[in-house]
Amino acid sequence: MTVRRIEGELPVAFRYTPGVGNTAFFEALRDRGTFLGSRCADCGVTYLPARIFCERCLAGLVPDTECGPEGTVESWTVARQDVDGRPLDPPVTFALVRLDGADTVLLHRLLGTADIGGRVRAVLRPERTASILDLQGFEPV
């Protein structure tokens, strides 16, 4: 038989350092259940999650600005398949939500139905581990 394919895989693993800004964000989320961003006064932009630099003017920033927990839906979509292309039953709705006080969005699950401009509120898990999954998603207000 003709040899037409040789299969292989890439079993690699990584550890990702969230960094100072993300760590401040995750610790505020875990310990106080709040959303911590950072504001560049010169650009008039509040980044969420917090960052230690402004991507517009490259000024140094500090994590000092609380946002949310309510916000506005900027967009949404429905995932009917997972990253492996397997059917999701039920489908999962993902949304971009701009929390009040922030100029950037968070990508997360939409727990219910809301269109662009719709108001939503963050739903936190009772037991939190300093991860983006401490947030369950956003539910319509």
Partner: peptide
Amino acid sequence: VLNRPLGVPALALAGLEMRR
């Protein structure tokens, strides 16, 4: 750190962008 843990397929970003 922020996106991959959600288990969101990357193509979902196209749906989000298209609607916006």
